[in-house]
Nucleic acid binder design. Structure first.
Lengths: 207, 207
DNA sequence: TGGTGTCAACCGTCCGGTCGGTTTGTTTAT
DNA sequence: ATAAACAAACCGACCGGACGGTTGACACCA
């Protein structure tokens, strides 16, 4: 398989995303993608021999984009405990391009895969497995890094489902709260490593 | 409109969920639902005059279930700052039934709506708006409660996408990390209200 | 001339929704 | 009490249209 996707295939994937973003998954048909890319259906099927392959390629591109996003963020982040978590907060929760177009794009890929054939999310799963492996080795008390990652996923979900319209301030608030959690957890990391705070119940019933 | 859904309509909604859970959204057809419920397509269309109405009813049922879930959790949680957040952590992140069948169910409704007609998630949006209103009035520093809610959504997403297979321990780890954050934030709430911790940068670039 | 890329037309299938009809249960008239 | 009358519940054959994918031809260039 060619490693670098030729230009035209990328254009077709862009068209696929555009269709999903504008008309929804239900209208993701070969005809609509071809029309969006100003190409005939035959031409489209020349590059992606089936709809499954098309969606698969889209998922792979998106997954690898996400992987390189957090990988680069990781390398740009100073060493120390919680490096991966800090990278996520500093880079992937910023209000730059990372939090607008990149997100719409990923939602297209994920939902298209989900609707077309759930097996096709597998590349995304692989990337997430890698991310969570990094987080597990992050030198933080258990659960902290996972909470950060989960919160980011949750914000993403809210965003793409339109549960929160556009509120940039909300993202900033959440990021600061998580940064505070990281700061607190790392500063007295030696004094309480595994037990974190002394398991004080906050009024709940069961543990 | 009748408040209590007659029994048969509930059975049909159950069948819809079963089809989505077992065969995926792509196979959610009127025929498959009717077959699952051991009824003819005509019978199904007698109760839900179109596929949109069927999915809409499913979303409403799921959304209201989620609302009553966190509402009851709220009332069972002792008063004080962060009551809603504590309720979510104690109740909706437990390892009881709340975290297995209820989740599969909600994924069916959300994804069916997303595939069929994105407008149909609106009831779910309304419920989430209510939840976030409660969280905003929770008496916590800004962002903390939202981080908790986002983390729960993220775990839900990971779960239904199969990104994490079944790991119950991971849920417990995240819950404890978030409980620790709540405990820390509430105990010195008076000493640092709005500025939380003194905005110590952890090595990132931009704020 | 043959390979590469592109196209329009077409095919079989399937899906959402319609429609006429049958069963079932309840009300009304005698 | 019984039958006629009615309405709601339910059925399944059918239709129009759309979809994924195939085919075979055309255009362009080496």
């Amino acid at each position: 398989m060619k490693r670098t996707t030729p230009k035209l295939q990328d254009k077709l994937l862009d068209a696929t995303e555009a269709v999903v973003a504008r008309q929804g998954i239900a209208n993701l048909t070969l005809d609509s993608v071809a029309a969006e890319a100003r190409m005939s259906k035959g031409g489209l099927l020349h590059y992606f021999p089936s709809k499954d392959r098309l969606v698969e390629a889209l998922v792979i591109r998106t997954a690898e984009g996400w992987r390189s996003c957090y990988t680069e963020a990781y390398e740009r982040t100073p060493e120390g405990p919680g490096r991966m978590s800090r990278a996520l907060l500093d880079h992937c929760l910023s209000d730059a391009k990372c939090w607008t177009e990149e997100l719409r794009r990923s939602s297209s890929a994920v939902f298209a895969a989900l609707a077309q054939n759930p097996v096709l999310i597998q590349p995304m799963r692989a990337v997430y497995a890698d991310l969570h492996r990094r987080i597990a080795q992050d030198g933080l008390p258990p659960g902290v890094g996972e909470a950060v990652a989960a919160a980011i996923d949750g914000l993403w979900l809210d965003w793409v489902l339109g549960i929160v319209p556009l509120e940039q301030v909300r993202v900033v608030r959440v990021r600061r709260a998580l940064e505070d959690m990281l700061a607190h957890v790392t500063q007295n990391r030696r004094s309480s490593k595994a037990k974190s705070t002394p398991r004080k119940r906050l009024g709940g019933r069961r543990v």
